[in-house]
Nucleic acid binder design. Structure first.
Lengths: 170, 170
DNA sequence: GATCGAATGTAGCATCCGCTACGGAAGCTG
DNA sequence: CAGCTTCCGTAGCGGATGCTACATTCGATC
């Protein structure tokens, strides 16, 4: 790997960390350059445009997410209700809340069709759905969208400090 | 009502229409002034700040939403599954999709705590929850958050062009 | 008709935005 | 050393941002 590629990779990593911790608000080229320890000039040089950089960063987040989920919950398949319970518990305990917040910010931009947000949100959603499907019993894989919907809706309520559905304690 | 109050009301109405049709992207003071047929100078004069104007507009949207829902679905209480079905059908048929998009944009900004978005999103969410509660059988009012979650999650999937949960046809 | 406050137009401030033009430095190749 | 490519710093463009200062116009009241 060339020096350039190494640098690009490091830049993307720094941007990912910044996005996860700060959200989409502070994503000016000059801010991103600061967290990368370089200049806006150089970010354009390496990535061509701000959107291309963000797209790569979102891609890296997508790739990292399933890895994190796998590490936390293992490959075991389980019934829908139990899987939902485990996922919500994981969000409670793990470092997932900032990513969930970022996810909702991303969806908020994606619904207008704005790129690169829409494409990134769809990619993230698809991977998430696939992960859920892979962790449901094979004969109930078709319930993945339903579980996804319940999970996302519950997270929305949580993020807005509105009352959550009552769940049977595990 | 004074001339000023009439004008303010008309301005808020114009801003509401603009928000619903265009979303949160094009909300510069000068853009809002254009759709109101006035100047940025005058919007500040009447409302004090852009945020105050937006807050009033979101308030008007909240107020209008339950009215629209009532008009479409009537006051009848119904079982959770049926209510969900009816709500999703209403979104399918009615002019609600732009409002739903705006709602998700609003949530996207609210999750970072940014005002006036957070307060407005919470208000809208609370009213929506209350509406659902009022349309569930009295002894099942506690299932409102669950229904809200399923509805919002399903709408998210729909807005992102991801596969929706299978529903029994009504 | 003088007066006064409400309403409004004009111009501008300070700051940010993504991006670019230009030129210099560094390092490799002949 | 010459010449070329890669890398990067400086400066700035044109436009948008929320908001303000100032001055004017207008309509109602005394």
């Amino acid at each position: 790997m060339t020096r350039s590629e190494e640098k690009r990779e490091a830049f993307v990593e720094a941007v990912v960390a910044h996005l996860v911790s700060e959200g989409l608000a502070d994503t000016g080229l000059r801010s991103l350059a600061r967290v990368c320890g370089t200049s806006d000039r150089m970010l354009i040089y390496h990535f061509g445009s701000k959107d291309a950089l963000l797209e790569q960063a979102f891609g890296a987040i997508v790739a990292g997410l399933t890895a994190q989920l796998d590490a936390l919950l293992g490959p075991r398949r389980r019934a829908p209700a139990r899987l939902l319970e485990d996922l919500l518990a994981a969000v409670d305990r793990g470092p997932f809340l900032p990513v969930v917040r970022l996810w909702f910010e991303l969806v908020g931009r994606a619904v207008t069709g704005e790129e690169p947000y829409r494409a990134s949100a769809r990619a993230l959603g698809e991977r998430w759905l696939a992960w859920i499907e892979a962790h449901l019993p094979r004969d109930r894989a078709d319930r993945a969208p339903e579980l996804f919907a319940t999970l996302e809706g519950t997270l929305m309520l949580r993020l807005l400090d509105l009352p959550e559905p009552e769940r049977p304690h595990a």
